[in-house]
Design a protein around this nucleic acid. Structure first.
Lengths: 328, 328
DNA sequence: AGAGATTAGTCAATCGATTTAATATGAAAA
DNA sequence: TTTTCATATTAAATCGATTGACTAATCTCT
């Protein structure tokens, strides 16, 4: 409500002087006395800088955005958390946006963010998010993609090798004697899930277990419950279940109680950290993505671009296979 | 990059005309032909409105903020998710901020948000957040508090009756024969946790079980692991454990594996939805807060204030006690 | 034909800062 | 005494939109 002009009027100086002092650029330009009076008056009058005006003038908002496809997914939740921590250190606020895996919403949000003059965007692209990404690039808004590559768009990218991670873990299971390994995935046509499926299939084939390959697609949203119930019924009769994402695992767990819980001796494998979950009588293994590192790298790349560097690169981080012993 | 002026120049009209068209206020002020030409040219030139300029001029940013104390806490995660959904419907973006239960950060963030000219703030106040809240109110930024009342500040509030919820659930446990019920809480001096503790203590006293009252305070942050280990050791020997918040429960679960898991027949009670978690052999009960309703109400109140209504009120929603049968 | 109403469009001020170039003042140097 | 050089301060343009007041032209109605 108080503006620099108000302070200037009160002290009979120009608003230039006030601005110089308040923005810390007064060295050698404003006398110590005037400086102190400005500072004191600003405090007295409860002055708060109007960032809108500043941003408009200088052309940057100290605001970046992270667009994820599903914030309620813990993996993305943690990712945004880490990005926020990094951003805070660098003096940026983060606008977190949820696209709900929906191309239309993704594009609409991109449009709004461009209007909002965010200084940069870290995005998990939706299946057909290419047009939105291109729009972002056309408007010269620094962009980094994470988790999924978007075909047809040349953007910086940070992620993991989903195919290798999946194949390796499934192969390990096989080596340990599991045969009837079924896979449950969300019915979304997105690269990471497709890669994970390929990894599973190839691992099974290489071990000569074609006859056991069993893919279950679970609808995302409408119909999920139904699909889960059906697939979990089959899952309980198998040696092991591979949930290809955190989301399908947690949703599965919410429903598994209905059908009697995870059977003794069965192995559960999934993507992303599931440490706090217990499966009761059975082992749990998971493929851990280095979320904090991914987030850090993504922000680092974004910051570099904001500062004018124009490198384009793809960064692939290694995953880890983790087994949590059954403690019963 | 393209501005209204650019479009105006291209068409030899004034930027007023362009603004009128692009902001949808052209009815009866601009001819259909000119309107169409403006629209077409805007598309051609890849025009995107500069929201900074618009916001500066009209005095509102269509941006609100939610300040929570811990985003990695699922309860707050869901709350912000629901607020975002509501906000999206009303055309607002949401800046989610994490105060880390830290008064200094809370105040600093409040300061930044005021500068950013957000249209309103929904806050979970930190223990001594009163000064920050007052600053927000002084600057006439619409404010709604949730989850915790902040003493000394007269702000709208939405939450639940933590004392009653806690007391009732503990009493139910007692009625079912549990005696040695221990309580684990975070070592934070915040109203909801204090109320939940009071509820537990009173329930025990009323049942004549003073001798069993056993409070464990777990440090938040540094030292948490240590405290958990110590307390879980004792917890395993009791009839039931009451975790007074989602956070202490999930952290506990991460560690309980080390000490052999939850014993047969023991009862686990906690605050907030824990459906996806399994405790193996034992029952799990939880006190459910109607998160979506709380979020909705909070946003509704905020919106009303943004629109100029000045009602102040406190809204207390009912909780539900839920028991998830042991399925083994 | 002239008053009044309608329609189409523009001017210029404004929001609140930042920043460049210009000016005023006094002291030191020539 | 004049020139020079800091030092301190300010005027004015600028960022990109919005908007109330105003003008001009066309149309309506008596």
């Amino acid at each position: 409500m108080t503006s620099m002009q108000d302070i200037a009027d009160r002290l009979n100086v120009s608003k230039s002087t006030v601005s110089l002092v308040l923005s810390g650029k007064s060295a050698g330009r404003v006398s110590e006395q005037v400086r102190n009076r400005v500072l004191a008056t600003a405090r007295e009058m409860d002055y708060h800088l109007n960032e809108l005006a500043r941003s408009l003038r200088v052309g940057s908002s100290n605001l970046i955005s992270v667009i994820v496809t599903d914030i309620s997914n813990e993996f993305f939740g943690q990712m945004t958390f880490h990005i926020q921590e990094e951003a805070k250190k660098a003096g940026y606020l983060v606008l977190t946006i949820n696209s709900n895996e929906n191309d239309g919403e993704f594009e609409q949000m991109a449009r709004i963010l461009i209007s909002k003059k965010v200084d940069g965007i870290i995005a998990v692209p939706t299946p057909a998010g290419a047009t939105a990404l291109k729009m972002i690039q056309d408007q010269k808004v620094p962009l980094v993609t994470v988790d999924r590559l978007c075909e047809g768009v040349d953007a910086d990218y940070v992620g993991v090798d989903n195919y290798e991670a999946s194949k390796k873990s499934v192969s390990e299971l096989i080596a340990q004697g599991f045969r009837d390994i079924i896979m449950m995935r969300l019915d979304l046509d997105i690269p990471p899930l497709n890669e994970r499926e390929r990894g599973y299939v190839d691992a099974m084939k290489e071990a000569g277990l074609e006859q056991y390959i069993d893919l279950h697609r679970i609808r995302f949203g409408e119909g999920m419950e139904e699909d889960l119930d059906r697939s979990l019924g089959k899952a309980l009769k198998s040696d092991a279940v591979f949930f290809t994402s955190h989301r399908v695992f947690t949703e599965g767990m919410k429903n598994v109680a209905k059908v009697g819980g995870v059977p003794q001796g069965q192995c559960v494998l999934c993507f992303d950290d599931v440490r706090p979950y217990m499966t009761g009588t059975s082992d749990i293994r998971y493929i851990e993505q280095p979320i904090a590192q991914i987030a850090q790298k993504a922000f680092e790349l974004l910051l570099a671009k904001i500062r004018g560097e124009k490198s384009t690169g793809r960064y692939i981080f290694p995953t880890r296979s983790i087994t949590r012993q059954n403690f019963m």
